[in-house]
Write a protein that binds this DNA or RNA. Structure first.
Lengths: 229, 229
DNA sequence: TTGACATCGTGTATTTTTTACACCATTGTT
DNA sequence: AACAATGGTGTAAAAAATACACGATGTCAA
C-alpha cells in the first residue's frame, strides 16, 4: 500500500533529548541503535512520525515506546533540516526535550527499554546522525529556561529538599551558588510549600522537605510574574 | 513525474512572520492569497518546501519570492502540526520570524509583492489557516528576545537616534520607558557608536545618530555577556 | 552516654542596580 | 526675538544582589 505525491516529500522524525538528574550530575537518556544506519551507536530516542496526531503526540508515543516514559514534561525544541543529516534519504527531524524524574525511569526499565541507558553529561558517547548538535541545542535551551521558569522541579521527586534543588541548579548551570542567598530567593516566591516531613539520610540533621505549588505558579504567571534564579 | 513512498508523508511548508517598525507601531507584513483555500484572505508569506536545501534556505526563498525581501534577520520559531490546520491535507508548517528594516521593503515592492502589505499590530485582519496562532507565538518570542539580545537594531535603519530606539522598545514591549534611564542603560554596554552625524528633522534640536557595533557584541557574547533592557 | 561527624538552617552589612524625577539646550518657525 | 518642539543630561532614594560564619540536629561508634 504505497503513497504517491506530485512532489517529493521529506520523511519526518521526532527526536527527544531526555534530561534526568541523579542528585549529582545532569543525565541524558540514550538508546543503542539496533539497525542501520549507525547500528550500535548511541542515539536520542525518537523515530518516524505517523501521520495521525500532532508532533507532540508523536514525540510522546516514541518516548513511551522506546523508554517506557509516560507523562513527562515535554516541549518542542527546534526542527533540524540539514541536507546530509541522514545518509539514507532526506529526513527532517523535529526535536523535543523532556524533563524526567530520574526515579521514574528505573522502574519502567523492564518494558522495552533494555537498550536505554542514562549517561552523565560529561560522559556522552559519540552520537548517531546530528544528535550531538540536537543535544547541544537542548542543553542551551534548558540552561536558559531554568533561569526564568520553574521547570527544575520536573527533574526532582515530588518531595525534595532545598539542597537537592540547589544541587540541580548548580549541575545544570555549571556554577556554584551561595546556600543562604539561594534559599532566600527561592523561598521568597512562596512557590515552595514546606511539608510536615523531613528527609532523614546519613548521620546528620534531617532536611525539611518541600513540594512545588504549580497552581500558585499559574496564578502568578497570569499577572506577569517571572521566576528568576 | 510522481513520487511514491511506503508510508504516507505530510506536506511541509514554511511560513514567515515578518516584523517591521515604522517609527510608531510594530508592523506585520501580510500577503493576500490569490488561491484557494482562504482565497482573498490575508496570510503570512510562505509556501511549500522544495526538497533541496535546508528549511532556513526555504524560508529565505519564499520570503524573497513573495515579498522581495533579501538578507533579513531570520530565525526559526516553531513547528506547527495541528491536524486540521490545512483543510486540503495534512500540512506541517515550520514557522520563522524575520526582522526587517522597514525602509527596505518599500523600495522592492515593485517586484512580485503587489499583494503584500504592512499592517500595524493593532489592525491585523483575520488570517488564513492557523496563522493567527503563529503570529501570536512570534510576538511572544520577539518580546522575550528583545529583552536579552540586541536584535532591535534589525528593525531600525543602520543609523538611528536613541529616541527611535526607545520608541521601538516601547512599541514592542508595550510599556513606557524613562528616557534618562533607558539611555544610561543602553549606552553603558558601549555597543552603540555615536556618529559624526545628527538627524535634523522638524523645528527642534537635532538628535545624535548612532550605529550598532555587531563585532563588539560578538566579542562580548563569547564572554557570557548579556544584553538586557 | 558521650563525643565526633556531617549536613541543615539561619541574618546582617556592603555593594550594586534600579528607579524616580526636572530643566536647560538647540534648532526651525513666525 | 519669542515660541514650539524634541534632544540631552545627573542625583538621590529604594531595592536587589552579594559576601560571609556558626550554632542546631540528627546518626553512629567508641
Amino acid at each position: 500500500m504505497n503513497h504517491t505525491y506530485k512532489y517529493p516529500r521529506a520523511a519526518l522524525t521526532v527526536d527527544c533529548v531526555v534530561f534526568g538528574f541523579d542528585g549529582g550530575a545532569l543525565q541524558i537518556l540514550l538508546i543503542q541503535r539496533g539497525l542501520k544506519p549507525f547500528k550500535d551507536h548511541w542515539a536520542l530516542p525518537g523515530g518516524f512520525v505517523q501521520m495521525n496526531g500532532t508532533l507532540d503526540e508523536a514525540a510522546r508515543r516514541e518516548l513511551e515506546e522506546e523508554t517506557g516514559l509516560k507523562q513527562v514534561f515535554l516541549e518542542q525544541l527546534y526542527t533540524f533540516s540539514g541536507v546530509e543529516r541522514d545518509p539514507r534519504e532526506r529526513v527532517i527531524s523535529v526535536a523535543y526535550y523532556a524533563l524526567v524524574k530520574h526515579t521514574d525511569h528505573v522502574t519502567t526499565a523492564a518494558t522495552d527499554a533494555a537498550d536505554a541507558r542514562w549517561f552523565p553529561l560529561a560522559e556522552i558517547p559519540p552520537l548517531a546522525f546530528d544528535h550531538a548538535t540536537i543535544l547541544e541545542t537542548a542543553l542551551h535551551r534548558l540552561r536558559g529556561k531554568l533561569s526564568y521558569e520553574p521547570i527544575g522541579f520536573e527533574l526532582l521527586p515530588a518531595k525534595f529538599t532545598l539542597t537537592q534543588l540547589q544541587r540541580l541548579y548548580e549541575a545544570v548551570l555549571g556554577t556554584e551558588i551561595d546556600k543562604r542567598n539561594f534559599r532566600k530567593k527561592v523561598l521568597s516566591y512562596n512557590l515552595l510549600l514546606p511539608l510536615k516531613e523531613t528527609r532523614r539520610e546519613g548521620a546528620h540533621r534531617p532536611a525539611q522537605l518541600f513540594r512545588f505549588d504549580p497552581a500558585r505558579y499559574e496564578r502568578l504567571k497570569q499577572k506577569g510574574f517571572l521566576f528568576e534564579v
